[in-house]
């Protein structure tokens, strides 16, 4: 070891670099690994949050976000006076509630019944079929629904139905619920099946020895054991009540059912992207985001009461 080497290093020790430099030397690589992703997050998730100011401005393309004039709450007033926005809000709530009532319990019932299928091979085949629609985009599923329900090519003629339920305001919302059941209820069973498979088998053995019937075992062991999962999922779902399913509605709706089908997301999309009214659409979006945020925070807090691991926050 030569003198120069010792000298260089003794200086380094005696110099006492600042905490920042020291940390950077020690941990610099970790930040470097995360930096590209953080930059993307900042650019495409955080800068748009700043862009929300155009909800309070009269945005013009050539003036840019900052150059456009402030207009206060003009766009919000316009939204609340406008009947379409109120209608979209109501429709969103109605469609979400219908799905909550008539879609949400379906996976748990399917999972309980599926768990009683004794033949593993049969069960596997059933699962493979009913999971499939989950992986297919609404663009394709909508095409299939159009065909199936068309008066000419579809199956409705067998029941003597002449007009497509897609064009009927009375049945359209139910169609949304049913098509959601078709697409996702099979897939939704997975989480409950996982919860069921984690139940301690000795519970069932003890119950059997005590003379509990199969039905009683489901009622008094399986159901209580997965109730927690159900409640937590239900609460978290309620946090997203303003997301009634943009893709599904956008693919399936048409002018005939607009008054019952138009949801916040489709309304905002239309006025913003199709009509180019950027500020108005942003005001609508901000309104939805803020209520959505409050809902998510509340439901996460609530879910934690039932399960301390639940939720993301």
């Amino acid at each position: 070891m030569n003198d120069a080497f010792i000298k260089k290093h003794s200086i380094a020790v005696h110099k006492k670099p600042s905490a920042f430099v020291k940390n950077l030397k020690k941990y610099g690589w970790y930040y470097a690994i995360g930096l590209p992703g953080l930059l993307i997050l900042f650019t495409y998730r955080y800068l748009p949050m700043g862009g929300l100011v155009i909800a309070f401005k009269d945005y013009h393309v050539n003036k840019g976000i900052w150059g456009s004039e402030w207009v206060g709450l003009k766009w919000f007033e316009m939204l609340f006076i406008n009947g379409d926005f109120a209608a979209a809000f109501t429709n969103t709530l109605i469609i979400s509630m219908l799905k909550l009532l008539f879609y949400f319990p379906v996976p748990i019932i399917l999972a309980l019944l599926m768990n009683e299928l004794a033949n593993r091979y049969y069960r596997r085949v059933v699962q493979t079929i009913i999971y499939l629609p989950h992986f297919i985009s609404w663009a394709i599923l909508a095409g299939i629904i159009f065909t199936l329900l068309s008066p000419q090519m579809g199956i409705l003629g067998l029941f003597g139905i002449k007009e497509s339920p897609l064009l009927d305001g009375g049945s359209f919302r139910w169609l949304l619920v049913f098509s959601e059941v078709w697409k996702d209820s099979g897939w939704g069973t997975i989480i409950y099946l996982a919860a069921i498979s984690s139940i301690d088998p000795s519970l069932y053995e003890a119950a059997t020895i005590d003379g509990a019937s199969r039905f009683q075992r489901v009622l008094y062991i399986t159901l209580p054991c997965i109730a927690g999962t159900f409640i937590v999922l239900l609460i978290l779902k309620m946090g997203h009540i303003l997301n009634a399913g943009f893709n599904q509605v956008y693919m399936l709706y048409n002018p005939n059912v607009m008054n019952v089908a138009d949801i916040l997301d489709t309304y905002i999309f239309r006025i913003g992207i199709s009509n180019g009214r950027f500020s108005l659409a942003t005001a609508g979006g901000l309104f939805k985001s803020v209520i959505g945020l409050i809902m998510v925070l509340m439901t996460n807090r609530l879910a934690k009461i039932f399960d301390s691991d639940a939720g993301i926050i």
Binding site: Y44, P48, M49, L52, I273, T282, S289, L297, I312, I313
Partner: peptide, 16 residues
């Protein structure tokens, strides 16, 4: 976490 629970919405994202 914040970027999960809140976002700028379609129009501001489009502008960026």
């Amino acid at each position: 976490i914040i970027s999960i629970i809140f976002n700028g919405g379609i129009i501001p994202t489009y502008l960026i």
